[in-house]
């Protein structure tokens, strides 16, 4: 378990998340891709904190902020999905291909 292997794992999670975010049609599946990206970012932050920053507490703080970002992203994402579905009965990105007028 070295910093290099940890960062490669984080890079794999971020890469899979980017694939999901760009390729999924369903809003909820798209959000799972975003969650995976944040997952990888948190792993990288903790790895740097543990192996390269001499335990500086700001590294843990960064991870806490990333967790808050993830919670906010999911709450706002679900609220927008519900609002869009109520307005247009749309649950895929393709269904929203036009502006209002």
């Amino acid at each position: 378990m070295t910093l290099t292997t940890l960062l490669i794992v984080a890079a794999a999670l971020i890469g899979i998340g980017i694939y999901g975010t760009l390729s999924q049609q369903s809003f909820v599946m798209l959000m799972m891709g975003l969650e995976l990206i944040v997952n990888g970012a948190m792993l990288a932050a903790v790895s740097f904190w543990a192996l390269s920053a001499a335990g500086a507490p700001e590294g843990q703080l960064l991870t806490i902020v990333a967790m808050a970002v993830m919670a906010i992203e999911m709450a706002m994402g679900f609220a927008l999905v519900v609002a869009v579905f109520r307005a247009k009965q749309a649950d895929t990105t393709e269904a929203l291909d036009g502006l209002k007028h």
Binding site: L7, I8, I14, G15, I18
Partner: peptide, 17 residues
């Protein structure tokens, strides 16, 4: 999407290595 995912993984791994 696959291409972008692989490129991002390769770039971040290169930074790690």
């Amino acid at each position: 999407a696959i291409g972008v995912g692989v490129v991002v993984f390769a770039a971040l791994s290169a930074v790690a290595v």
